[in-house]
Design a protein around this nucleic acid. Structure first.
Lengths: 201, 201
DNA sequence: GTTTTATCTTGACAGTGTCAACATAGCCTT
DNA sequence: AAGGCTATGTTGACACTGTCAAGATAAAAC
């Protein structure tokens, strides 16, 4: 920092790139995110990033990994509120999931988009953060099944895939602009929650 | 065709471009689809396509429109099988929806991806084909509600959004490579169908 | 037959990711 | 302290991309 002028090296380019990328991501979207611009943001030449990331996809994976770890802790916080009933927590989880996606559309797009997942492009670092996040969905589902909230005659993994799929699908319809009308998000969340918990209704 | 050598004009470049694009789409994916390659496929210069499409997005929209109209007729065919019970047809619809996505991943990605929908980029031609397709989902939902298949205490539009969201979400998880394991597609479809129809279970 | 319009052409520009070859800064060993 | 190794930075180059501008020709309209 202090020796920025003197020192040939940047100091912590890797962090600087991720930081710049995160800023650009939420502002201009994942599509208009170029390595060259990020390098310029960090005050460094075009190819410098390649000494810290194998390629563009690796950089994106690193950002997505941060997103997954953030969401994982958020999900745990919601799930572990012992002062609330499972029903309330479930409904809250649904709202928070869609809310997270709606509030951070570009980050969500990056985390769950094909850019970093397709063609086995996903980094091991990314998988190590994302898979526990997916697994947590199964854990929660099993818990809600035990509490009689979700149907007990279904395999937990299968049911987790479907419930997660529902949230994911609604989130994507909103984010991708297919449903431009985002004024009824809350109603949609409640409808989904009601549908899953209809045995209690 | 016959006068291809003599004639300065291509003849039906618009159709040729769409055809070439559709072929390339299913083979190499939407991401590696460039106007220049398509022009080359059609035996024409790089900028010729601009006399038939405003820009790349307009070409993609035209292809997607074809996909929507194809799917719409497929959906109607499934829905209108009068010799089968509503239950059977509903389950079949779920399987066919995911099946269509799994069999034509790149087309599905194009149809429901942000590429053509974001930033109000969608052509009017596209909207005119896609919106009736969405609307049909609501029509079917209302019918299944009347038949007692789906919960009747929910708004049809809202419920259609959620059921469609579920199918869409599962389809995307599969297509985007987040669930590489596609060997349990059928089980997931059955689980989703069971979940929606659980009142009858 | 002349004019207008649709269609296609080449040239150019500003981008992009990424590789190769080279330079230096900082640490590690002797 | 000297030399060498490695991490980190540099410029140059290549092959792409979408898209605009300006010019040419074919086809249709008058």
């Amino acid at each position: 920092m202090a020796n920025a002028v003197q020192s040939y090296h940047h100091g912590d380019l890797r962090s600087a790139l991720i930081e710049a990328a995160t800023a650009r991501l939420s502002e201009h979207g994942v599509d208009s995110l170029s390595l060259r611009k990020l390098a310029e943001d960090a005050g460094v030449s075009r190819t410098a990033p390649y000494h810290h990331f194998k390629d563009k996809s690796a950089l994106l994976s690193a950002i997505a990994a941060k997103g997954f770890s953030d969401w994982h802790t958020a999900a745990k916080r919601i799930f572990e509120q012992e002062d609330k009933t499972p029903q309330v927590r479930f409904r809250e989880f649904v709202h928070e999931y869609i809310g997270y996606a709606a509030d951070n559309p570009e980050m969500y797009e990056l985390m769950f988009g094909r850019t970093i997942w397709q063609n086995q492009a996903a980094t091991n670092d990314l998988k190590n953060v994302a898979f526990p996040c997916f697994q947590f969905q199964v854990t929660m589902t099993r818990y809600w099944q035990e509490k009689g909230l979700l149907p007990n005659n279904q395999d937990a993994l299968r049911l987790a895939q479907v419930t997660w799929g529902t949230l994911h699908g609604i989130a994507r319809l909103l984010i991708d602009g297919i449903y431009a009308d985002s004024s009824h998000i809350k109603e949609m969340c409640d409808c989904a929650a009601d549908l899953f918990m209809q045995k209690q209704a």
